[in-house]
Simulated scan of single mutants.
Amino acid sequence: MSHIHATEELRLGDVLVVNCSHQCNVMLMSNTDYGRYRRGEKFQYHGGHFTKFPTRFQAPGAGMWNVVIDVGDRAVELRYDIRVMRK
């Protein structure tokens, strides 16, 4: 599993902006779900598979969130940027 992981403290209504050089899954998830993701278990997330960037989605709630950029099993030289637009 190849992925990029970052944590962001978000407020309700903040907008996460992700720019990426390759199509990928961009997921925003809780600590519990990030642990499940890493163990290969069923997990919940906000986001999805994106082919066009930048992509934007709104924080579902306040707190610490895990931002995951997942390119699957592909070996790529990934260039990315994660920004938060505050409400």
Rank of each mutant, 00 (worst) to 15 (best):
A6P: 00
W65V: 08
L10W: 00
V71R: 07
R39E: 12
E9S: 15
M27I: 08
E41G: 03
D33P: 01
R79D: 15
R83E: 14
Q23Y: 06
A6L: 11
M1F: 11
H5V: 01
Q58I: 14
G47A: 04
F57Q: 13
T51L: 05
L28A: 05
L12P: 01
I4K: 11
D81N: 12
S30R: 14
E9M: 08
Y80A: 06
V15G: 06
R39I: 02
G48I: 07
Y80M: 01
H49Q: 09
Y34A: 00
R39H: 06
Y37S: 03
D33W: 01
G35E: 06
L78W: 00
R83S: 15
V26S: 02
E8Y: 05
A59Y: 14
T7P: 03
I82C: 06
V71T: 13
R36K: 15
E77R: 14
K52G: 05
T32Y: 11
N19H: 11
D73N: 12
E8H: 10
G35K: 00
D73V: 05
I4F: 08
G48M: 07
R86Y: 11
Y34F: 05
Y45M: 08
D33G: 01
M85H: 10
H49A: 08
G47S: 04
W65P: 06
S21Y: 11
R86L: 12
